[in-house]
Design a protein around this nucleic acid. Structure first.
Lengths: 184, 184
DNA sequence: GTCTATATCAAGATAGAC
DNA sequence: GTCTATCTTGATATAGAC
């Protein structure tokens, strides 16, 4: 039997799942290792510290959103309405199946306040989200209005994800998507 | 010199400040004790565990909001407009001076997912907030609409507090209050 | 690439003196 | 009510064998 090789990406996806469900500080290297079928010392072969795993986890999700979700906002040969429908559909698909909510939002509250590195990465993510929404909204709204709406809906989405998980009720979150679609 | 007595309430207010700025799991009993001018063992004279401090911190803030902020929604000899202005003014006053945002929102994301006791207390708080807003909105909106608006604005406020702290920009949060006032 | 073993430190919590 | 002292556990991280 060949020894199973664990990739850095596997470690990141397990870490992300744990960080979302248990929180960042409440997740130990041993927890991460166990989820990967390793013992904690082995993780240090792939990442030099827990903070590095945290930062790379945030970047990993950011890249996923840029590539798979935010990108649809810039498909300018498609109508704003279709782009918004697609954007909402993909966002829903992610968050309705994301046990523990939004990692970036969670760590914005848990870690960012005390850690400027985390804060910077999280800010970049939310700005990209806001810019994507603006790109869809700007054809149907004055530029200034579109910017404010984009900002507002990023906040609202994060708040709604919080409430969805707290009350175990997807409707709170789904209503945000409905309202977004009515804007174009 | 008499020995300084530390009250349970002092310990709670110091804990709340630390939990908001550093997070719950990242705040130790030693951190709390130091903020109170004690050593960690002494805290156990007042509270039997860290979790008890967490729960009591949440309840402490909940009671503050019920008594000082949510209450204005039920002053039915005042007009809805004046009640909303007052409600927003008091909420602003709290959160604009609350380093670290909203403890209940923070712990909703950090702890509640794994701890049903925390979840229950936090849910009660957000439901009370929602009910207060509903009480102001119901005179100017159909009952169902007022309920949905109340829910939506609780989510939006929490998201906006997150963004305010992340971007160090109060405008994101202040816009929520402005929009709330336009609803009555 | 993963393991065993270990170093170092800090966590939550308790006992008992003052 | 606070202290010193200590217990036990678990945290991050490293060294070196396989």
């Amino acid at each position: 039997m060949a020894i199973k090789k664990t990739s850095a990406e596997q470690i990141l996806t397990e870490s992300i799942s744990l960080f979302k469900r248990r929180g960042y500080y409440n997740t130990s290297m041993a927890n991460i290792a166990e989820a990967c079928g390793l013992i904690k010392g082995s993780i240090y072969h792939h990442f030099k510290s827990k903070d590095e795993i945290g930062i790379e986890s945030l970047k990993y999700i950011h890249e996923y959103f840029v590539k798979n979700i935010f990108s649809v906002a810039y498909e300018t040969n498609t109508s704003p309405k279709d782009r918004m429908d697609n954007f909402v559909k993909k966002t829903d698909n992610y968050f309705l199946n994301s046990e523990g909510g939004c990692l970036l939002g969670n760590l914005a509250l848990e870690v960012a306040h005390e850690n400027e590195n985390f804060k910077e990465v999280i800010r970049t993510y939310f700005t990209a989200w806001e810019n994507a929404l603006y790109e869809i909204l700007k054809d149907r709204h004055y530029s200034e209005d579109a910017k404010n709406l984009a900002k507002e809906y990023v906040s609202l989405t994060q708040g709604a994800i919080m409430m969805m998980n707290l009350y175990d009720n997807k409707d709170i979150y789904l209503d945000v998507g409905k309202k977004l679609k009515n804007l174009v």
